[in-house]
Design a protein around this nucleic acid. Structure first.
Lengths: 343, 343
DNA sequence: TGTTAGCACTCTTGTTTGGCGAGTGCTAAT
DNA sequence: ATTAGCACTCGCCAAACAAGAGTGCTAACA
C-alpha cells in the first residue's frame, strides 16, 4: 500500500507532467506549496514509487515521468472530481440549445465542440441505426433498370440505397410493393427487416407481384443495411500540436489509423455504459501506444445508442476530459430522449 | 530565349529533383546518358539558368533546385506526354467496371484510387447537385411536429431534411401536399425549386391545404438546398510521407487547411474545363506554398459537373499525374454520361 | 527512526572544433 | 566554345567539452 505522502507525490508528479510535459525532478517538486519536505526525502519516495512501477526515468539521471501503471492508479484513485468552468458549460449548452432535428447533426456538433474545448481528438460512434424502427419505406424508380429504396426510421434517420430492378419489372408494381412493405414492416426494427421479409412479406408479394423471386432476393439484399454505425470526428489533427507528437513517424501511424477508421470502430463498439479510460497499451493498438482513449456512452431513454470519446496523449487532462464527457453525455441523452422517445 | 542545351539541362535537373528530392549538382548531371558535355559547361549553363530564375541554390555551394518559375516552364513546355503504365490503367478500369449506381460512391472511389496510385492527396469536388432535376419528393411525418422531406434527383441522389410542421397541421394533408408537389415539380432543376413553389404551386396549395402560408414558408425554406457541393478526399495523410514534409509545422498548417475544407473548396470551384496546374504560391494560399494542385473537370454529357484534383508537393510527378487525371476524367465522364444521360 | 544536507556521479543539451565531401566559380589551356 | 584544374564555400558529422539538472548514497541530525 502507498503511504499518504507517496500518494501526494505521485499526484503532484502526474499533475505537473500533464501540465508541462517535462520530466519532473525532486528539486522542482520540493518547491511546490503542497510539498513541505525536502528534495532528498522526495528522492527517496520517488525511488520507491519507481520500484513499484508508478513512475519511470527517461534516463539514469533524469526527472521522473508517470508510467502507464501510474496513470492507471491516478485515474482510479487520485482523480478529484472537478467542476467544469462555467465557460465550458455555456459552450456545450449553446450547442444543445439550437433546434436541430437530425440526430447525426447533433452528434457531429458534439464532436466538434468537444475537440475544440479539449484540443484533443473527439470521436463519436454514431447512433446505432439497426435498433431503430422502420417508419416508412419508399421506392422510387429512377430509370428502367434501377430504383432507390429509401428507409426512414422513427428517429428521423434516412438511409437510401440504389438497386437494380429485375428485368421486365413493371413500374406500376413498384407502388404496390411499397404499399405492402409499409403495411407489414412499419415499426419493425431494422435488424429484423430481412427476417420479416422472408417470413411475413414473401407470401403476400407472391400473390401480388410478378417475378416474385427475383424481387425478393434483391429486396432483402438491399434492406440488409448492415452498414456499421458511422464514426464522426472533431479535431482530427489536434494531436499534432501535442509535444509528444513531434516525431513525424508517430504522427503518421496515428493519423493513418484514424483515417482507416476500422481499428477505432472496434475500440468504440461494445462499450459498457458509463465512462471508461483506456491508457496507452491498454488499447491494444500499437498506433495508440502513446494515447489514452476515454469513452462515454449516450442513450435515448433507456436504450444505449452510441459512444462518444476523446483521444489524447497518455499525458491527458483526465479530470477535465472526464467532467466534460460526463456533462455532454448527460445533456446529449436528455436531448435525444426528449426528441425521440415519444411513445 | 533558352538554348536547346539549357532546355535539356533544365529538364534533366527537374526530372532528377522530382525523383530524388535532392539538389542536383553539375557533376552528377554530367554522368547522365543524355548529357554529353562536361560538368564545367553545365556549371556555366546552370549559372545562366539561375540568373534567369529557373533554378535556385539552397546555399552558396549547393546543387540546384527548380524554382516555381522553373516548374512552370517545365509543365508548360518541357512535359513529354507520357502513356500510362498498363497496370495503372487496369486499376482505374476496374473501379469503373463495378456496377455502382450512386454517383457519390463512384466519385469517392475515384478519389481513393487516385490517391493510391499517386501517393499524393486526391480531392474531388462532388457533382453539382443543384443542376440536377427533381425526380420525386416525399414527405414523411415522424412526429406531431416534425417531418422529413426527401428529395430524389434524376441522378439517383437523395437529399433529406427534417423540418418542423406548423402547429395543428393535419397529418392527412401531408400526403395531399406531396402529391401536388410531385405533380408540379417533377423534372424541375433543384435550383429553381424555390422559385417554382411560389410561382406555380402556391396557388394550388392555397386551395387544398389549411394553414397555407406557414407551410409554404417552411417548405421553400426546406427545399432551398443551398448546400455547397461536397468534397471527397483520398489519401489525406499521404503528404506525410513526402520528404519535404518532415517539418511538423508545415504538416500541421497543411492538414489544418485540408481539414477546414473551405479554402480548398474555393480553389476547386469555378474551374474552366480541362486540366490545370497551379504551382506553389500560384495557389494564393500560404499553407500550399510548397504544394502544387492539378485540377481536372468531369462532366455528364455536355454539362460539367465537378472537379477532380491531385494535391502534391511542388516536386510532383507532373507528367504522370496529368496522364492519370486525363485518363480518369475521361472514364468518369463516359460512365456518368452513360448512367445519367438518358434523355 | 525518519528526515535532511552534502557530495560525487550520470546523463542531456548546447556549443565548438576540425575533417570530409559535394559543389561552385573562376581562370587558363585546348 | 569547351573543358581541366584549382581554390573556396558550405553542410554534415563526429568528437570534445562545459553547463545544468537530476539522481543515489552516506552521514549527520532531531
Amino acid at each position: 500500500m502507498l503511504t499518504e505522502r507517496q500518494l501526494l507525490i505521485l499526484q503532484v508528479i502526474i499533475d505537473e507532467f500533464i501540465s508541462y510535459a517535462q520530466p519532473v525532478g525532486s528539486r522542482s517538486l520540493s518547491k511546490k506549496d503542497e510539498i513541505t519536505f525536502s528534495s532528498a526525502t522526495i528522492r527517496n519516495e520517488m525511488s520507491d514509487l519507481e520500484e513499484l512501477g508508478f513512475i519511470e526515468k527517461t534516463h539514469t539521471s533524469s526527472g521522473r515521468v508517470p508510467s502507464e501503471k501510474g496513470y492507471r492508479y491516478y485515474v482510479d484513485h487520485l482523480l478529484s472530481p472537478q467542476t467544469l468552468k462555467s465557460n465550458d458549460m455555456l459552450m456545450i449548452k449553446s450547442v444543445f440549445a439550437e433546434r436541430i432535428y437530425e440526430l447525426e447533426k447533433i452528434v457531429q456538433k458534439s464532436a466538434k465542440i468537444l475537440s475544440e474545448l479539449t484540443n484533443y481528438t473527439a470521436i463519436v460512434l454514431g447512433p446505432k441505426v439497426k435498433d431503430h424502427k422502420l417508419k416508412k419505406i419508399q421506392i422510387v424508380p429512377i430509370s428502367e433498370e434501377t430504383a432507390i429504396a429509401i428507409i426512414v426510421t422513427d428517429t428521423g434517420h434516412v438511409e437510401n440505397k440504389v438497386f437494380s430492378l429485375p428485368p421486365s419489372f413493371d413500374v406500376n408494381e413498384v407502388e404496390k410493393m411499397a404499399n405492402i412493405l409499409n403495411d407489414r414492416l412499419a415499426g419493425v426494427p431494422l435488424m429484423e427487416l430481412k427476417d420479416k421479409i422472408y417470413k411475413e412479406v414473401a407470401m403476400l408479394l407472391k400473390q401480388h407481384i410478378h417475378n416474385y423471386d427475383a424481387v425478393i432476393a434483391t429486396l432483402s439484399d438491399t434492406l440488409n443495411l448492415s452498414k456499421p454505425e458511422k464514426l464522426f470526428f472533431g479535431g482530427k489533427t489536434n494531436m499534432l500540436s501535442q509535444p509528444e507528437f513531434h516525431d513525424i513517424d508517430k504522427v503518421r501511424s496515428l493519423l493513418a489509423m484514424i483515417e482507416q477508421e476500422k481499428g477505432l470502430y472496434d475500440l468504440m463498439k461494445r462499450n459498457p455504459a458509463g465512462i471508461h479510460v483506456k491508457i496507452g497499451r491498454e488499447n491494444n493498438n500499437s498506433a495508440l501506444a502513446a494515447c489514452s482513449l476515454i469513452t462515454a456512452t449516450y442513450s435515448v431513454g433507456p436504450e444505449q445508442v452510441g459512444t462518444i470519446a476523446i483521444l489524447g496523449p497518455t499525458r491527458m487532462e483526465y479530470s477535465r476530459v472526464i467532467s466534460l464527457l460526463q456533462f455532454i453525455t448527460t445533456d446529449l441523452t436528455a436531448l435525444l430522449t426528449k426528441l425521440y422517445q415519444k411513445e
